[in-house]
Design a protein around this nucleic acid. Structure first.
Length: 529
DNA sequence: CGGATTTGACCTGCGC
DNA sequence: GCGCAGGTCAAATCCG
């Protein structure tokens, strides 16, 4: 014999037996309403003993409880909107009366004064709480903005200083050497600082040689032919030149080559033919790529003479709203801080990818900075691949932003406002230079109304700094506050990759780690909440 | 007219 | 060595 609870309707036969009150499926402190919500029928629970065997129908009533007596009612006259419970509970007990159970539970709108007050108070409390949270986030937002701009300005200053130092070094070596020796000094000098400056500032070291070789190409007569064997790979950052000039250092050779090849790829949804990334680009080619009906366009940075940075833009074959932009090379010119954040991020990522370790301790591309700068994409995916032929960092921005971001950023046709929203000034990336984003939309005059001439750059800069940059930072910092976990995840991903394969060791194999904060991903175990 | 884009040709690297 | 695909060049063309 078992003891249990018998549920009965008022003045009717039992409708069910349960081993405990909780098994009723709803609060026993209930009354039943008809569809109109008027007539009530009390639920009554009786404690009974009954046979566990179905054959034995005998029951012994031990006691009967009216759950609606004042003594047992948990909240006096608490009632619940009938619709809620109708849907939720009607199936639990089939009374055959199409009754609606009123449990007196606390989840619902209210139709009497007391519960109304309680609900109001609770709502107000929650509202106040949210306000406090919002204020906190705003404060953090402001703080991060300040940090971001400070880092940007620090970087710019440091970069300019480095340029000056390099120029100085170049000049001093030039005076002391023969012409042939000069060349060696230039290139040799380039490799030394790079060793500790890593990718971000390495571009500056490349500058003299880059500029000189590029100037040969660009500043010369348009009809002057540069030997084909020389042109593409004879860029100072090209892998073929270094070994000749510095054959005694194979490590540097491979590093140079890898740096040249290191790429940062950004996938984003955009209707525009090209996402704005703060740089000025000139299209120099277009090619049909195998396996993709969409042509691949080739662009070269024209913000400075001889800037070796190039990018490829191609639409995804599967989803043509997705635009894949791949950057390669290092800028040889300072860029406005407008787009520093993300540029630094990808720079740091690429740097780590290439160096096989966390960024140099100079602080420019330290993990914290990486963290802050990558966070705008926190709800998206960063894929870092060391697969051949080039180590590539891919920022996949095609995933939906997380709810927080949705709330903070007005919806646009783009999913990633920070990157491709025309008004927010897209900021994309440079694989190696922590300063690429800036002057976005210089080439996107159809969005901004700005012209894309060199002369306008200066005109553009003030609004960049004061308006668009602010917008960008807003978006960035908003995203930062939205997901504080992403940076650590990315750093872990990079470290993970580096642990498995070092591109500069020449044994790059398929070794891809995904950092995905928006969807579950088996390969990113470090992103668990 | 000057700068940007287009486009066909050419070069290079890689796999077979 | 050959063919293919990716990447680049530069003359032609477009456009403001």
């Amino acid at each position: 014999m078992d003891k249990g609870w018998c549920l009965t309707l008022e003045n009717s036969d039992p409708v069910g037996f349960f081993t405990s009150k909780s098994d009723f499926g709803f609060d026993l402190s209930s009354r039943l309403y008809d569809k109109e919500g008027t007539a009530t029928m009390f639920l009554t629970g009786r404690e009974e003993q009954y046979a566990s065997s179905p054959a034995d129908e005998r029951r012994v009533v031990l006691g009967e409880v009216d759950f609606f007596s004042d003594k047992n009612r948990p909240v006096k006259d608490m009632s619940v909107k009938k619709e809620d419970l109708h849907t939720a509970r009607e199936s639990d007990v089939n009374t055959g009366l199409q009754l609606v159970i009123n449990t007196g539970s606390d989840q619902s709108t209210v139709d009497d004064g007391i519960s109304s007050d309680v609900e109001d108070k609770r709502a107000k409390n929650e509202l106040a709480k949210l306000k406090v949270e919002l204020e906190g986030m705003n404060a953090e937002n402001q703080r991060l903005r300040g940090m971001l701009s400070q880092v940007s300005s620090n970087y710019t200053a440091l970069q300019m200083r480095l340029v000056g130092l390099m120029q100085q070094q170049k000049n001093s070596t030039a005076h002391d050497s023969t012409q042939e020796h000069e060349k060696k000094q230039e290139n040799g000098g380039a490799t030394v600082p790079r060793q500790f400056l890593d990718l971000g500032l390495a571009s500056e070291i490349d500058d003299p040689s880059n500029s000189s070789s590029e100037e040969k190409t660009t500043s010369g007569s348009p009809h002057k032919k540069i030997g084909r064997a020389e042109s593409p790979e004879s860029d100072s950052c090209g892998p073929n030149k270094i070994p000749k000039l510095n054959p005694s250092n194979p490590v540097d050779q491979s590093t140079e080559a890898t740096m040249k090849k290191a790429r940062v790829s950004v996938r984003a949804r955009s209707e525009a033919p090209m996402i704005s990334d703060g740089c000025q680009w000139r299209k120099y080619g277009q090619k049909m790529a195998k396996g993709n009906p969409c042509p691949r366009a080739y662009y070269r940075c024209t913000m400075a003479v001889g800037c070796p940075v190039r990018k490829q833009v191609q639409r995804c074959a599967e989803d043509r709203t997705i635009l894949t932009t791949t950057y390669e090379g290092t800028h040889n010119h300072p860029l406005p801080p407008a787009a520093m954040a993300l540029a630094s991020t990808t720079s740091a990522a690429a740097s780590m990818l290439l160096s096989g370790s966390m960024p140099s301790p100079d602080g420019l591309i330290n993990p914290n900075f990486l963290a802050r700068t990558l966070l705008p994409y926190s709800s998206n995916m960063a894929t870092i691949s060391a697969s051949a032929p080039f180590p590539t960092v891919t920022l996949d921005l095609t995933h939906s932003p997380n709810p927080l971001q949705c709330q903070r950023v007005p919806p646009t046709q783009y999913q990633v406002p920070f990157l491709v929203h025309p008004q927010n000034f897209a900021s994309v990336t440079n694989p190696q230079m922590p300063q690429v984003f800036g002057q976005a939309l210089v080439n996107q005059s159809k969005f901004s109304g700005l012209q894309s001439s060199q002369n306008n750059i200066e005109q553009i800069q003030p609004p960049l700094h004061h308006q668009s940059f602010t917008n960008t930072l807003s978006a960035a910092t908003a995203a930062i506050t939205a997901d504080p976990n992403f940076s650590a995840a990315l750093a872990a991903a990079i470290t993970s990759i580096m642990g498995g394969s070092r591109p500069d060791s020449g044994n790059a194999t398929n070794n891809t780690t995904n950092v995905n904060t928006s969807t579950s991903n088996k390969s990113s175990s470090f992103m668990g909440n």
